[in-house]
Design a binder for these strands. Structure first.
Ligand code: NAD
Ligand code: NAD
Lengths: 222, 222
DNA sequence: AGGGTTTTGTTTAATAATTAACAATTAAAT
DNA sequence: ATTTAATTGTTAATTATTAAACAAAACCCT
């Protein structure tokens, strides 16, 4: 097998960094909401840091990077930061999402009530099984060959893949072809996508295996 | 509010690193299996790298770190590496897992057939809803107050939390108290645990929001 | 009003992770 | 057998991330 020998560059690197940072910001928001509900209206970097398990400097740096400003001696005004984060995440808009596969995972997602609080909505599902189409679902469910039409009509850019591994790449291709730009993938494969499409994998098995490794490792060194 | 001013140290840091590395190893395994099924019996760092989106040097470094050895000029023998990874992950043992919460997510997990191929098994579920106990499930389901007994009797160290946010911390405490050392958490909160308990969060909403941010950011800079 | 104290925000330093480089090796070709 | 080409594994360099340090700001208390 012949390989390229030219210098390897990593187009996804910078994107991974941004994604990691924004994920921390999303965690801060969760925590800010918690403290707001507890009746606080201000918070310090130290408190936030402790809560999500990073250093206070990290919090200040993250906030600084996204231009989230605090007050010297008085910390961060929770509402102010929340507003800024919501703006950053375009939370003023409702974000439409489509879902491929209404099996075990797909059904759980359809039932989930947490999306709407965060201004996200599953607008359509797709499944090859005719039984899934008839079912009185919370969302309209179509056969897969209507996916392109629905994506275009509804102008959806985010899709969830919850179909069997064997058809996941094919569904992914259809999604991308029709204009989907971000994919949350539950299937245990690495999807191939163009560089401008972002994929986030969720693998319950992988996470469990990593957990198991960690616990066994700790047991050994004890 | 008065804060500690002593130097901040980060006990979880080293663990995060190990977890990240082992997660990459788990991904390599997924990829190795794929190529094995395609009929290959050897593979190069370059191929693996391309497949999971890292540099070939990273693959070699990771393998080296876990003492997974290849052959100069001939790459890595897939079966050999797979065997070593499985040994590393203690795949010779069946790993028992308990599940708290048999709602939408919990039911999906119970139905999932992918665990057993990877030598993991849900051995018991816990739910406060009596209706969930009666249901003819694939696994026995108990009320939460039997959790400690079952965990001890079955010697389980891994637990999944799929209960509502409001009770997640309480269930977590019960698990830890009874001997659980690794927790996969679906509830949208940061669980508080002793330092020797590893927590892995899965947050569909967070991941979706990060995806949305990425796609909108890309749209802007286009 | 003003000093003391606390906390941010940023710069600088330290640490960690990734990539590059290359020597060692060996499979395959001749 | 010998040579060639290719790929690993490790060391060195680079880059990225995280933490420490500290100056500037501003709250609070007297
Ligand atoms: N259930 C879990 O807890 C779990 C855990 C980890 C990973 N996963 C992964 O998530 C994915 C879905 O898992 P699941 O348990 O929900 O599976 P499932 O078999 O219950 O559901 C899959 C659904 O996809 C539909 N489908 C099949 N081919 C299709 C196609 N070409 N187009 C559209 N729909 C199609 C099926 O009709 C079915 O409804 C799988 O890849 C699985 O490996 C599931
Ligand atoms: N469903 C999803 O797609 C989804 C997505 C993201 C996050 N989550 C999170 O996952 C968790 C579970 O979600 P869900 O949709 O399955 O919720 P659900 O309400 O369908 O299920 C929760 C289950 O927990 C049980 N329960 C409640 N209190 C309990 C207790 N004290 N002990 C044991 N069991 C108890 C309930 O009886 C119910 O069966 C929630 O924290 C939710 O925010 C779910």
């Amino acid at each position: 097998m012949q390989h390229k020998t030219e210098t390897y560059t990593h187009p996804q690197k910078n994107r991974e960094m941004i994604k990691k940072n924004i994920q921390r910001i999303i965690q801060y928001r969760m925590c800010l909401l918690k403290f707001q509900n507890l009746g606080f209206d201000r918070i310090f970097s130290y408190t936030l840091a402790q809560e999500i398990g990073v250093s206070p400097e990290q919090v200040r740096k993250d906030f600084s990077q996204f231009n989230l400003r605090g007050n010297k001696k008085a910390g961060y005004k929770i509402q102010e930061i929340l507003d800024s984060i919501n703006e950053l995440l375009h939370k003023e808009d409702l974000h439409k999402i489509i879902l491929a596969g209404l099996g075990n995972i797909g059904k759980a997602l359809v039932q989930y009530k947490g999306f709407i609080n965060r201004n996200m909505q599953l607008v359509a599902g797709f499944d090859i099984d005719p039984a899934k189409l008839k079912k009185n679902c919370r969302i309209p469910v179509f056969p897969p060959d209507e996916m392109a039409r629905v994506i275009r009509e509804e102008k959806v850019v985010i899709g969830i893949i919850a179909v069997p591994e064997q058809v996941a790449q094919e569904i992914c291709n259809q999604m991308v072809e029709a204009g989907i730009r971000g994919i949350l993938n539950f299937a245990p494969i690495m999807l191939k996508t163009p560089p401008d499409v972002t994929v986030q994998n969720i693998s319950v098995c992988n996470e469990l295996e990593a957990l198991i490794y960690m616990t066994e490792k700790q047991e050994e060194t004890k």
